[in-house]
């Protein structure tokens, strides 16, 4: 009788839930969340630009992950941002579950935290983590006149964040309004369109993608631009994770103070 019960239990256990034990993180943005879910110990592989998880092995970059190393790590969960750099065929080579981490809004981040936590059996931690983010959001103050915002990704050629970028939702949440220019993540932009759209705030990121940009205030073609220039750190802003909520708060404060 007890043996039957044990077998039944085993059967139930094996079908009901999957708990990842060996994770490879190919989406750098997800690293922060995995760490905050206390699942860092499960990470066996990561891309080279992930600072967290010092003991995990590097498996190349998120653009060119090394399939051999990943396979050798024998993971049971792969976290990727899209199929762009890690195709379905590549995924077919690895016998592991795939998790797409590519939130396009702050709410989506919370949703994905929830989903990821389920796979990692960290539902408890997820609840506190999500609650903490919601608390941050509740501190946001309304902005009476939402400023029009442009977010510069690279100076030359000039590219800016589009509507599909997490930054669009971040800026909207903070009380601003990203100048709407089509539904891509980033796009080549015309300097004269910057002038004619008359942004109130011009955010320029500095980081690996935009290493030594000329400060916009010093650029000859912006001498007409009646906007506030805000410099931000690319690595802080471009990844969609719990920091996005802090950034929303920071921006919200900035928008409020400049009113």
């Amino acid at each position: 009788m007890s043996r039957l019960l044990a077998a039944l239990l085993l059967l139930l256990f094996s079908t009901s839930s999957f708990a990842a034990q060996r994770i490879v993180v190919l989406a750098p943005a997800a690293a922060d969340i995995i760490e905050k879910l206390d699942a860092g110990v499960l990470v066996v592989g990561k891309t080279r630009n992930v600072e967290e998880f010092p003991r995990a092995q590097k498996v190349g970059s998120h653009i060119r992950p090394n399939l051999e190393i990943i396979r050798a790590l024998d993971p049971d969960l792969l976290i990727i941002s899209s199929n762009r750099f890690f195709s379905a065929e590549m995924a077919g080579q690895i016998d592991a579950q795939l998790f797409h981490y590519a939130p396009d809004s702050l709410n989506d981040i919370l949703q994905q935290i929830n989903d990821l936590a389920a796979l990692l059996e960290r539902t408890e931690q997820a609840r506190t983590l999500i609650a903490a983010q919601r608390r941050k959001l509740s501190q946001l103050q309304p902005i009476e006149k939402p400023p029009a915002v442009i977010y510069e990704i690279t100076e030359a050629p000039l590219t800016i964040a589009g509507n599909n970028n997490i930054l669009a939702d971040l800026i909207n949440t903070a009380g601003g309004r990203l100048i709407s220019v089509g539904s891509r993540k980033m796009l080549r932009f015309n300097p004269e369109a910057v002038l004619s759209s008359q942004p109130d705030v011009y955010i320029w990121q500095v980081g690996p993608m935009n290493q030594h940009p000329t400060p916009p205030a010093e650029r000859a073609l912006y001498h007409l631009l009646d906007a506030d220039f805000l410099k931000v750190d690319q690595l802080q802003y471009s990844r969609a994770n719990t920091r996005s909520f802090d950034n929303a708060l920071t921006l919200n404060r900035y928008f409020r103070e400049r009113q």
């Binding site: 080549r188 004269e192 759209s197």
Partner: peptide
């Protein structure tokens, strides 16, 4: 300059 509306550019 003008093929994509909204100020985006095609190379």
């Amino acid at each position: 300059r003008s093929i994509i509306p909204g100020g985006a550019e095609l190379p």
